[in-house]
């Protein structure tokens, strides 16, 4: 089966020590132990201070109100009660979920189709040209490319509407209508991250058992049937992996809506991270911003947990 999801599981931690560590009695062992700590110290300190503790602090802050000027005030579950009936927050989760689902589905469908088609190419240079084409967008920053796409999708002067008009389609109000703005953000995000999914699928398709595929082909099975009855089930763990990783990534979307739509029109593209940004850094409400962060964090944790449990099950079956 594909190696990627298989290695994604946690059990590596158990292999870590090799032989079970013995009690640290001899001076040599104590010295080795001290050396190990010294080697880990720098990474460990940075990870502790800037990743591990901030998780705890986010959780703590979510039970306070704090505007920096006056000292923080403990409010218990008030932030979460407010959040549960705050239409702006609920709406932002809806917006984020819709964007993420659209982005992930398109990424997987296009990425898998492209991987299958590139795999059919025999010459190495053709493969590498196509691979580079899908890879190139990964090198551009999301902020820069959002600037570029906001020009390309400009309603009056944009290149996209110009060509649509040539084939008889009325100019689309891309960034000024809720549906258009959603579509534009989805297009940019898919355009930028497709290379990642594409590479995953190329690796998965390359590792399929060749003897099975040859046997099926000799039996006279056409390419479409081979795909749906053999290849698709075999690469389903990779599809699932790409879907969950893609969801985790897309649920944090910020750069594209911030640059292209500012969350508008109205709040039709105000994602959860944009709302956290506004609440915490524009309205200076650190407590409420933290409460929204906690909810987003738990959602993402759930997705990560799904990835681990389900992929482990699949690995077992193969």
């Amino acid at each position: 089966m594909t190696t990627v999801p298989a290695r994604g599981g946690l059990p590596g931690a158990r292999r870590a020590g090799g032989p079970r560590p013995r009690p640290h009695h001899t001076p040599a062992m104590r010295q080795e132990s001290r050396f190990g700590w010294m080697m880990f110290a720098l990474s460990g300190l940075a990870i502790l201070v800037f990743t591990a503790l901030p998780i705890v602090f986010t959780l703590l802050l979510s039970f306070f109100t704090w505007d920096v000027i006056t000292p923080p005030q403990f409010v218990g579950f008030q932030n979460f009660q407010k959040l549960a009936s705050d239409t702006a927050v609920i709406h932002s989760f809806g917006v984020t979920g819709l964007l993420a689902v659209l982005i992930v589905i398109l990424q997987i469908v296009i990425g898998l189709t492209m991987a299958l088609l590139v795999q059919q190419r025999k010459s190495t240079w053709a493969r590498s040209i196509f691979r580079t084409a899908f890879f190139l967008p990964l090198l551009v920053s999301a902020a820069s490319i959002s600037i570029v796409f906001s020009y390309l999708f400009d309603t009056n002067f944009g290149v996209v509407n110009y060509y649509l008009q040539l084939i008889g389609i009325a100019p689309v109000d891309w960034m000024n209508s809720p549906a258009g703005a959603t579509a534009t953000i989805v297009i940019v995000a898919v355009w930028q991250k497709l290379g990642f999914v594409f590479i995953l699928f190329v690796a998965a398709l390359g590792s399929l058992p060749q003897d099975v595929l040859e046997a099926v082909s000799l039996d006279g099975s056409g390419p479409i049937r081979t795909f749906f009855s053999i290849k698709l089930p075999l690469i389903s763990p990779t599809i699932f992996f790409a879907a969950v990783i893609g969801m985790i990534d897309a649920m944090q979307i910020f750069d594209q809506p911030y640059v292209m739509t500012k969350g508008g029109p109205g709040d039709s593209t105000t994602t959860t991270v944009m709302l956290i940004y506004r609440t915490a850094f524009q309205n200076i409400d650190f407590g409420y911003g933290s409460a929204i962060s906690v909810v987003l964090f738990l959602l993402l944790l759930l997705l990560t947990w799904m990835q681990f449990t389900v992929s482990r099950k699949w690995v077992f079956y193969s």
Binding site: L10, A13, G44, F57, F281
Partner: peptide, 21 residues
């Protein structure tokens, strides 16, 4: 195990305490 767990933490959700720090 702690290092592995922090690998899964999305930076966006801890930005507020990091900013305060």
């Amino acid at each position: 195990a702690i290092v592995l767990a922090t690998m899964m933490v999305p930076a966006q959700t801890t930005i507020i305490p990091v900013f305060i720090l």
